[in-house]
Simulated scan of single mutants.
Amino acid sequence: MKIIINADDFGYSKAVNEAIDLCMVQGLISSTTLMANMPFASEAVNRACLNKYEECIGAHITLTEGKALSRSILNCNRLVDKDGFFQIKRNSLFWFTKSERNAIKEEIDAQISWLKSKGLRISHVDSHHHIHTEFLVLILLCKVCKKYGITKIRLPLYYKSNNILIKIYKYCIKFYVFFNGFKTVDYFVDKSMLSHFEGKNVVLELMVHPIINGNRIIDSVTSESIEGINFGHLFFYDEL
């Protein structure tokens, strides 16, 4: 079993940036994905460049929180409020109009363009609240990634389910990613799922959300320690 440990939400806040920066410096995680539209995005870039891990930065596409970076989406009142802040939730809209699709594509482009303008290579792409695993968003994301030569995209979160529709949907997502020439891991998991894969010849991506709690670095979602969760050598998206 090989594990990529990726910290989501770089740029979200000063506290999150500090925790992720410490994890990268100490080698506790493989990579992190940065939210271009958050107030502390520039500080995150500065930390990455200062501590020389800018090659391990991906894009954390954000369509469900924060303020939009592009212009066309401001005219889409189902997607943003009057001040340009995102108001959609994952799985809340099952269809987008042509103007909404164009606006979402423009916004994804704007976020990636901002990261590229800061000198980041962008090793891989995922999204806030996993919004890119909605099929229409995934299609738009793939188009923008091809434009910028980005070749790695996160899969939907793995979990065991007897629901045949969920299984078919996730298979379709994985097939679409591979069919369009992108590389990815075998499974995307959280810490609770690691035991299912012990002893298996697979590559996993483990999602964490670091925050500093006293003298410990914990996951803000699970409150569990991040230290010591890797099984030996960390794997990187560039090794896929």
Rank of each mutant, 00 (worst) to 15 (best):
D219G: 07
L155Y: 07
D238R: 14
I131A: 15
R101V: 03
L155D: 11
I211T: 11
L115I: 14
Y171F: 14
F86D: 02
E198D: 08
K160L: 14
C23L: 06
R90H: 12
N163Q: 09
Y187N: 01
K143H: 06
I104P: 06
I122H: 02
V177T: 10
R71H: 05
A44R: 02
R90Y: 06
C145T: 01
Y171Q: 15
R101I: 02
E100D: 05
M38C: 00
A48D: 09
E134Q: 15
S123N: 15
I88R: 09
Q87L: 11
I229Q: 03
K146D: 15
T184A: 05
H209F: 11
F188H: 02
T32V: 07
E18P: 03
A36C: 05
K183F: 05
C23I: 07
L165Y: 14
S123I: 13
L34V: 12
C23W: 06
Y53P: 06
K116P: 10
E224M: 03
S223G: 04
F231A: 07
F235C: 11
N163R: 15
K89P: 04
I166M: 14
T97E: 12
I20Q: 02
A41L: 13
D238M: 10
L155R: 13
H209R: 12
Q87Y: 03
I153Y: 03
K152A: 04
L138M: 13
A15T: 11
S72Y: 04
N46W: 05
L69G: 05
R47W: 03
L140M: 13
K116A: 10
K200T: 06
E54Y: 04
Q87W: 03
K14E: 15
R154C: 02
F231D: 05
I212M: 01
